[in-house]
C-alpha cells in the first residue's frame, strides 16, 4: 500500500508565511522633516525583490518594540529598492527613527489594495495629499510620469502645516518644473519669507479647471482633510466612484484575520487601504467606527 503522505514529496520551495517577517537592512536613511524620515531597505540576504503596487503597505517590525503598518513610498518599477517614509509618532516609529545604516528591520508584506493607476489610463489624474499622505501617493506619481503619454492632465495638490513640513522638496521642485504636470502646494501657516500659498488644501481646488467625467482623484491625508476634499469634488460633480481615498486604522496582522482594522463590513488591511469613496462615504459619517 502506498503511503498517504510522502514527506519526501514535500514542495521544494516553502511558501513564506505572511506572518513571518523577512529581515531587511537599512541601506539609506534620510531625514525629511523634523519628525519624518525615509528608510531605503534591502533584504539582509542580499537577494530578492519586493514587488508591490502603488498604495500598498508593509508591516515594519522594530525588533523588541513592535510592528507598524507603513505605506510603501518608493517606485514600483524598482523592486530592489524598498522605500518607506515614516513619521515618528508612536513607540514603534520613534524606535525606528533611531535605526542607523546597516541596522536590521523586519518586513511583512506587501498588503492591501492599490491606487487605480491602470484604471486611470486615458483620464486626467488628480492627486491630493496632505502631510505624510504624500508618501503613499508618491508611487502613483512615479508610475504616471513613467508612462506620461497614457494619461491626460496630471495635477498634484499638496498641503502641509508649515513650509518646513513639506516632504520630498527636491522632487516637488522637479515635478513643478515639468510642463506636463501642475503642482500646487499650500501650507496652513507661514512666515512672510514663504512665497507660496497659505490656506488649507481645499482652497487649491478653486485654481483648477477639472473635467469631472474624465478625471480620477486620489486623496491621501488626515481623514478630516479627505472628507472635505471629497465634499468639494462632489460639489464639482465628481462621481463617488471617481474619488479614491486611503484609509488608516490600527492594522496588526495585515491579512484580515485579527480584526483590529475592521471598518464596517471590511478590513482595511485586506479590502483597503485604498477605497472608492462610494464604499466609505456612509462609514465616514459614523462616529462609532
Amino acid at each position: 500500500m502506498e503511503p498517504v503522505f510522502d514527506s519526501k514529496a514535500a514542495p521544494k520551495e516553502a511558501v513564506p508565511s505572511p506572518m513571518a517577517p523577512e529581515i531587511f537592512r537599512v541601506e539609506k536613511y534620510r531625514r525629511e522633516t523634523h519628525d519624518t524620515y525615509t528608510l531605503e531597505l534591502r533584504p539582509a540576504s542580499g537577494t530578492g525583490e519586493h514587488r508591490f503596487k502603488a498604495g500598498q503597505f508593509n508591516m515594519l517590525y522594530t525588533f523588541g518594540v513592535g510592528e507598524a503598518a507603513i505605506s510603501i513610498s518608493g517606485d514600483p518599477s524598482l523592486p530592489n529598492h524598498l522605500i518607506h517614509t515614516i513619521r515618528a509618532v508612536g513607540a514603534v516609529t520613534k524606535a525606528m527613527s533611531k535605526l542607523k545604516v546597516g541596522g536590521t528591520i523586519g518586513v511583512r508584506g506587501p498588503f492591501g489594495s492599490c491606487w487605480p493607476v491602470q484604471e486611470a489610463v486615458g483620464n486626467d489624474v488628480l492627486i491630493i495629499a496632505g502631510g505624510i499622505g504624500l508618501a503613499p501617493l508618491r508611487p502613483v506619481i512615479y508610475q504616471v510620469l513613467a508612462e506620461r503619454r497614457k494619461y491626460g492632465k496630471v495635477f498634484l495638490l499638496y498641503g502641509t502645516r508649515t513650509p518646513d513640513d513639506l516632504l520630498y522638496r527636491g522632487e516637488l521642485e522637479k515635478w513643478r518644473a515639468r510642463f506636463d504636470m501642475e503642482v500646487l502646494a499650500t501650507v496652513d501657516r507661514a512666515s512672510s519669507d514663504w512665497h507660496g500659498n497659505v490656506g488649507v488644501v481645499t482652497t487649491l481646488l478653486k485654481k483648477l479647471v477639472l473635467d469631472p467625467n474624465n478625471t480620477v482623484a486620489m486623496i491621501c491625508g488626515p481623514e478630516i482633510m479627505m472628507r472635505f476634499v471629497a465634499m468639494d469634488l462632489i460639489k464639482k460633480d465628481f462621481g463617488l466612484d471617481r474619488i479614491y481615498v486611503s484609509m488608516e486604522r490600527n492594522m496588526k496582522c495585515g491579512i484580515g484575520l485579527c480584526g483590529h482594522c475592521q471598518y464596517g463590513p471590511t478590513f482595511i488591511c485586506k479590502d483597503g487601504p485604498v477605497y472608492t469613496y462610494d464604499r466609505v462615504i456612509e462609514l465616514l459619517a459614523r462616529r462609532e467606527i
Partner: peptide
C-alpha cells in the same frame, strides 16, 4: 470660515 476651521484643527499635526 470653513477653511479657517480646518486650519484651526491643525489636521496635519498629531492632535487629530
Amino acid at each position: 470660515l470653513s477653511a479657517t476651521r480646518l486650519q484651526l484643527l491643525d489636521i496635519y499635526g498629531t492632535r487629530v
